[in-house]
Amino acid sequence: MLVDTHCHLDFPPFVEDLDSVISRAAAVGVRSMVTIGVTLDRHPGNLAVAERFDDVWCTVGIHPNEADTAPEVTVDTLIRLADHPKVIGFGETGLDYFHKRAPKEVQEHLFRVHIAAARETGLPLSIHSRDAIQDTADILREEYEKGPFKAVLHCFGGSPLLAEVGMELGLLFSIAGVVTFPNARSLHEIIPSVPLDRLVVETDAPYLTPVPHRGERNEPAYAAFTAARVATLKGVDMEEFRRASTDNFFRLFTKARRPRTAGH
C-alpha cells in the first residue's frame, strides 16, 4: 500500500466526487491519506472529511500564506484542536516568500507556534518552505535546540541546505509529483542520497499533478506515479518502496492506524 501524506480533500475541486476519488486511490493501493489544514476557519470542514472515511486523517494548522488570518493563535489553541482521534499532526506551517501574502514576521511567529505545539504533544508537523530556504533552515535549527520535535518537509524540492537540516534533525522528506517533471534536476540528483527510511510521498492534490496527468486535477491515486519515480531514483523495486514509505509514515504519524485489511 501507499500513503498520500499531504493532500487537500476539503478543497472545492473535490466537492462533487470525493467518494470516487477515495475509491480510485484505494484501487491503486493508496489506502491512507492526510488532508492538510490551511486555516482554522476551514478546520471543521477538513475534520469532517477525515471523519467521513476510515483511512483519511487530517492535521490542524495555518498555511504561511494565510498567516494573517489568525496571527495571534496560541500553542494551547492548536493543541486543543488536535485533541481528536482523527487529527494526527499540525500544519501545514512554515514560510512562503513567493506569494508575499502575509508579513514575514507573522509567518515566522506562527511557524514557531506550530513547532512549540509539536514539541509539547509529540505530534509531527508538515513544513512548507517556498523561496525561504535559509530562514526555514535557521528556524528549524534554532527551535530544535529548545527541544526535539517531529516533522516532515512537505513537497521537498531538492534544496541541499534543507536536505542537510532534515538529515541533521531526523525529519522526513515528502516527495510530490514535481519529481516526475523532466526539469526537476536538483530533486533527481539529491533523492538517491536520502535514506529510504526518510522518504514518503504526497500529491498536494488538487495541485502539482504528476506526469502523465499534468494539466488535470491532481488526486491521491496519482501518488502511485510519484512513488514509481522515486523508487527508480532510489534503485529499488516498487514493492520495497511502497513498504518502506508506508512504514515511515506510520512511524512518524503515530496517531494514524493502518488500514484494517492492508498489512504493508
Rank of each mutant, 00 (worst) to 15 (best):
V60M: 10
V179T: 11
T93P: 06
P192N: 07
L110Q: 06
T69R: 11
N183A: 11
P103H: 11
P13I: 08
R119V: 09
L252N: 09
F14N: 04
V194K: 04
V106W: 06
A26R: 14
F225I: 06
A25E: 05
D96L: 01
E168H: 03
V178P: 01
F249W: 11
D54H: 07
I79Y: 01
H8L: 09
V38Q: 06
E120Q: 15
E240C: 05
L95Q: 03
S20K: 15
V230D: 07
A137T: 12
L169Q: 12
A67P: 07
R251S: 15
D68G: 00
P206Y: 13
T246N: 09
F11M: 15
V113A: 03
E145W: 01
D41M: 01
L233Y: 02
S23T: 13
H84F: 02
K86F: 07
D10L: 03
Q134P: 00
T59N: 07
H109F: 08
R112F: 12
E16Y: 02
A231S: 11
G157S: 15
D204T: 06
P124Y: 10
I133P: 00
T254M: 02
F173H: 02
P124H: 10
G157V: 03
K255G: 01
L2W: 14
F225K: 09
T203W: 14
P182E: 14
H213G: 00
I127W: 05
P206D: 13
M33E: 09
C7Y: 12
A224R: 14
C58N: 14
E51C: 14
V87R: 05
I88E: 04
L196K: 07
P259T: 04
N248F: 05
L196Y: 03
P103C: 00
P182Q: 14
R242I: 00
G157I: 03
D204W: 01
I190N: 06
T226G: 04
P206R: 13
L81W: 07
Y207S: 14
L199A: 01
A151P: 06
H188P: 08
R141T: 10
N46H: 01
Y207F: 15
D55A: 02
D68T: 09
F250H: 02
H128I: 10
T77S: 03
V38D: 02
I191A: 09
L9R: 08
F149V: 08
G170I: 12
Q134F: 08
F149P: 04
Q134T: 13
I88R: 02
T74R: 07
L78H: 03
T261P: 00
G215R: 03
L196H: 06
V211W: 07
T121F: 11
S193A: 09
N218I: 06
T93R: 05
R101H: 14
V113I: 15
F149Q: 05
L18E: 06
F98I: 01
H6G: 08
P64V: 06
R214V: 04
H264D: 07
E142L: 12
D10H: 15
V3S: 08
G61N: 12
T246I: 10
F181L: 13
M167P: 00
R243E: 14
V15T: 10
I115M: 12
Y144R: 02
G122V: 14
R185K: 15
D4Y: 13
I190C: 05
G215N: 03
E72W: 00
V21P: 04
T93V: 13
K100E: 13
I115W: 09
G157A: 14
